[in-house]
């Protein structure tokens, strides 16, 4: 089979969503005629027409508000925020309406919308273009959050997000847009998002929000999603040179969290480190660490480690390599789990 990039996989997923369901629409800044600043929607307006793939003004609250209204009239919109940092102008829609409308309407209104957000850093971009917004989104009730790590994962998870009956924030790791991978064939692809739970790598989980084990190991579990999965895979390869066997768990869904998958992996390794680009303080790693502490208090050999950013804004491009989780920082966190001694 041929290879494809994540950008091509996302483009294919969007095309298949539009082809499969007439109620599916794509809206956002430059998604139509231009084909998206990262080419993710390239060719879709040409193929499906301006009624189904259309450009909006530069007004993110309007984009998301329009998507909410479309849902109320039976459509399944896929809205794009051009960059992570521009989700903040739309946050009132997210917090005040997307998160509440189903409850407010007593279940009469569902919001099957997908909000695509090119996310995270590492592409030497200017301010507002390298943010990690997963915690903000996952903290809101009734909103699901997912972030793929590879091209085929991106295809499968975007199809799952669009098919989901609830609003889903889909965080695309923009530093991985041009990463290549062998293309997985047809039906295997669509099912991929619902397989390979950390709880049982061979079993299909009914709920479809499973994590996946990227690499098996017995000494420590690295937990990540989106762009940081690749960072963990690199750190695991270095650790193997030192005789340390690292398990890498890709959460995929940040909400709902695959708690059973997390617990199953860490119950085996007894040590865990969560890796994300967002600041450590109140980052999603805090939630994962708390859950593991609650479920595995007697099993853990060390406190759950967290690798993330300091409490400062995302820096200028020249400094971002210092800010992002490096292999050395991940390895040091692993070492701390080995050196931990109970008081």
């Amino acid at each position: 089979m041929a290879e494809w990039t994540m950008q091509e996989a996302l483009n294919a997923a969007l095309a298949d969503c539009l082809a499969d369901d007439d109620r599916t629409l794509i809206l956002g800044e430059d998604v139509g005629r231009n084909g998206g600043v990262f080419r993710v929607t390239a060719g879709l307006q040409e193929r499906f027409g301006e009624q189904r793939v259309f450009d909006t003004p530069l007004a993110e609250a309007g984009i998301l508000g329009t998507a909410v209204g479309l849902c109320m009239h039976g459509f399944r919109p896929i809205a794009e925020m051009q960059f992570d940092g521009f989700t903040f102008p739309a946050f009132n829609q997210l917090a005040a309406h997307v998160s509440k409308l189903r409850t407010r309407s007593g279940g009469a209104l569902n919001l099957p919308l997908t909000l695509r957000v090119p996310s995270y850093g590492a592409i030497r971009s200017p301010e507002h273009h390298s943010e990690s917004i997963e915690t903000f989104c996952a903290h809101l009730p009734s909103i699901k959050v997912v972030s793929p790590s590879t091209p085929s994962e991106a295809y499968a998870l975007l199809r799952a997000a669009v098919a989901d009956p609830d609003p889903v924030v889909f965080l695309e790791p923009k530093s991985r847009y041009w990463s290549r991978e062998e293309r997985v064939a047809g039906d295997d692809l669509v099912g991929a998002g619902a397989r390979q739970s950390g709880a049982d790598a061979d079993a299909e989980r009914g709920d479809g929000y499973a994590s996946r084990i990227v690499r098996s190991g017995s000494d420590v579990t690295l937990i990540a999603w989106g762009a940081c999965v690749q960072r963990c895979v690199q750190a695991a390869a270095f650790a193997a040179e030192d005789g340390v066997e690292v398990e890498v768990l890709d959460l995929r869904w940040l909400k709902p969290l695959d708690v059973d998958g997390l617990v199953a992996s860490v119950a085996r390794t007894r040590r865990a480190v969560v890796v994300h680009e967002a600041p450590v303080t109140l980052g999603l790693g805090a939630e994962v660490a708390a859950l593991l502490g609650e479920r595995l208090f007697g099993t853990l050999a060390a406190p759950v480690g967290r690798v993330g950013a300091p409490d400062m804004p995302y820096p200028v491009a020249a400094l971002e390599d210092e800010y992002l989780p490096s292999p050395d920082r991940i390895l040091l966190a692993i070492q701390r789990t080995f050196d931990a001694v109970a008081a």
Binding site: S218, V244, P327, L331, F338
Partner: peptide, 20 residues
């Protein structure tokens, strides 16, 4: 220029736990 993906580098070496 767009940064090409540089191969990762390391300095930290791990000391595995004595008792597994």
């Amino acid at each position: 220029t767009v940064p090409a993906e540089a191969p990762p580098t390391r300095r930290v070496r791990l000391r595995p736990p004595a008792a597994r």
